[in-house]
């Protein structure tokens, strides 16, 4: 009898982890080498990586194609402004309180939307987000339909200088994104991740092999709401102003996020990261073209869907068998004399 061991890491994942580690060090020191403009752009990029990664978990793995995640972005944003303005909570603490509250809110939302399947679920989640937007515009203490700014006293209290505040927000964006990604990777490496990956590949077979598909989907939905609300709270803390139309924007928080995930590679952790880089590159180089930029983006999305339906990372991963993160379980047989 020979022995067995199971390993996650492969050669490509060792390279991947090394590259990610180096990138993290470079990004963490950005305040010392980047100008104000660069920091702002990078912080925004991080929040999109986080949003797209969360949507990827939801749609790419659990098969829950929601077009209503702006509900939780906006909810997080409004929770932050409410806590800060009405209760005097520290903004950073408010980000971390917004997460669990949104998770709680997502449970009744799931009870409602999980009755719908496929396209109906997608539309249902959008309707819920619109309801949230309309509710937010009714809150007169938070400016009703026109929104509200963060009081100057709160902004000043965050850090002694404007530069210090910007550094703080930058590191917060990087930290939160790393936290979200780490949580997703840990989830996927766990027993739940095994179930989730099986559901991604084949729901019927997953059920027939003992996986409680509905329960796993509910867990993912709630966790995604948790993360999305925290990211939403941070985005609007950086913007210093919130309004129903910006906080619950289907364009910004869902359409772009879907674009990112689809071109990067849906159903793979690496996909949203690649997708966000491409999205920001296109936006920075093409934004002078006005609405033509949106047309080009649409064309790119169509081409990718036709020629690389699993996204750019999907193409690479299947061609070369690469994984940038050690997620897959590999069976290694150990020689007899060792065991």
């Amino acid at each position: 009898m020979s022995g067995y061991s199971v390993e996650h890491a492969t050669r490509s994942s060792r390279v991947g982890v090394a590259v990610i580690a180096i990138a993290l060090v470079v990004l963490a020191t950005a305040p010392f080498w980047g100008d104000r403009q660069t920091l702002r752009l990078l912080a925004e990029l991080f929040t999109f990586v986080a949003l797209a990664s969360l949507w990827n978990l939801l749609a790419g793995y659990a098969g829950l194609v929601s077009v209503g995640q702006q509900a939780f972005v906006g909810l997080g944003a409004y929770l932050l402004f409410a806590m800060v303005i009405l209760a005097g909570v520290h903004p950073i603490a408010a980000i971390f309180i917004a997460g669990p509250i949104a998770a709680l809110v997502s449970i009744p939302v799931a009870a409602l939307t999980f009755r719908l399947r496929g396209a109906y679920f997608a539309i249902g989640t959008w309707v819920v987000a619109e309801v949230f937007r309309l509710l937010a515009s009714q809150i007169s203490v938070l400016g009703g339909g026109s929104g509200v700014s963060l009081p100057a006293s709160v902004v000043i209290a965050m850090a002694p200088t404007r530069t210090a505040r910007e550094f703080e927000l930058y590191w917060l964006a990087l930290g939160l994104t790393v936290l979200v990604l780490a949580a997703i990777v840990m989830l996927l490496r766990s027993r739940h991740g095994l179930a989730l990956t099986a559901i991604r590949d084949n729901e019927v077979a997953a059920q027939s092999n003992g996986i409680d598909v509905t329960r796993v989907k509910l867990i993912v939905y709630v966790l995604t709401a948790f993360g999305t609300a925290m990211v939403g709270a941070l985005i609007f803390l950086m913007k210093l102003r919130v309004s129903p139309d910006t906080a619950f924007s289907v364009n910004d928080w869902t359409a772009f996020v879907i674009f990112i995930t689809v071109i990067g590679g849906i159903g793979r952790v690496e996909g949203p990261i690649i997708g966000t880089i491409i999205f920001f590159f296109m936006r920075q180089t093409l934004s002078d073209l006005g609405s033509l930029y949106l047309l080009i983006m649409g064309a790119v999305a169509i081409v990718v869907m036709l020629w690389a339906p699993k996204g750019l990372w999907g193409l690479i991963a299947e061609r070369f068998g690469w994984q940038a993160l050690p997620l897959q379980r590999h069976l290694v047989s150990t020689p007899q004399d060792k065991s």
Partner: peptide, 27 residues
């Protein structure tokens, strides 16, 4: 049950496919 038209978890390895069934099918 084995399906007439095989229903593998196509993005997972063969080993992972069996691990899923063993871990969840037998709790």
């Amino acid at each position: 049950r084995s399906f007439q038209i095989p229903q593998p978890f196509s993005g997972m390895t063969v080993f992972e496919n069996v691990v899923v069934a063993a871990a969840f099918g037998n709790n």
